[in-house]
Amino acid sequence: MSDLTLQRQAKRKLNGKFIRNQVFSWALVLPAILFLCLFTFYPMGNLVHLSLYRGNITNPYKTFRGIENYLDILVRRPQFMTTLKNTALYVCMYVPICLSLSVIFAVWLQKARKINNFAQTCFFAPHLVATISSAFMWSWIFSPESSGIANGIIKVFGFNTHNWLGSSSTAMVCVMIMNTWASIGHHALIFLSALKSIPGEVYEAAELDSSSAVKTFFKITLPLLSPQIFLMLITMTTNSFKIFESVRQMTGGGPGISTKTVCMFIYDNAFETNNTLGLAGASSIVLTIILMLITLLDFKGLEKKVHYQ
């Protein structure tokens, strides 16, 4: 065979391999792309489209309104901004409290004691309960009558009973307590697995370096947990901005609209009131943009402080 034929054969072989590789790669990612297009990108596009119209579920595109829906929620009607403020307040309470409690709890669970396995199971169990059921249960706990456990406890200490969920100053706090209770075990478990991967020698070295327990926690443990803390910060922030069923069950957004969240506003406009589907769409878009901005800010501001191994 001549050199030329050999070269051609080799080239054909290479081409065949290249095509096979391409086909195989696309076959692997195609299902994911398909799902992404079908359930993320298409609804997103549709949502933008929807937000420009006035309509309802049966006839979403009744009349074109352009950016009027956006002006309505952001400028003309104050309700969206109020719900946004409520949600932001909830996020500002829930994220730091739940995050720090999870870390502290994980540090406590880290030591191999018999009670810790039991505690871990106890704290994780609420995560397995449906949010709506948990919310039901906590509504009873915070029941305004003296039959509620919360009121029962404060009565023991000689305080007057309080309408926990009916008072605008405590209702959101109650929702936060319920959600912290429900998720702390799950978050702590993530931190616990990270803590267990820190070699014990590092702590022994710190002990030999005369480091106090508090200093060791802030200078060694916390920086080593930073990747997990960063991840949890982002997921907790975005998830808690979307809070819906616990508030709906526990307070219904009340008293007044003092605990009404953005997602409740969206739900009400989409399914409860007539011809406001476009407002719901516009609100969803605004919420998405806010979440993207927060995530972006988190990355810009904190990523440098995160220590990756």
Binding site: P199, E201, V202, E204, A205, A206, E207, L208, D209, S210, S211, K219, I220, P223, L224, S226, H307, Q309
Partner: peptide, 17 residues
């Protein structure tokens, strides 16, 4: 910390952060 000793560990045990 009160023993006036220093130790070098097998896996160094330096503080990675």
């Amino acid at each position: 910390s009160k023993r006036d000793i220093a130790m070098v560990f097998q896996n160094y045990a330096i503080y990675p952060t």
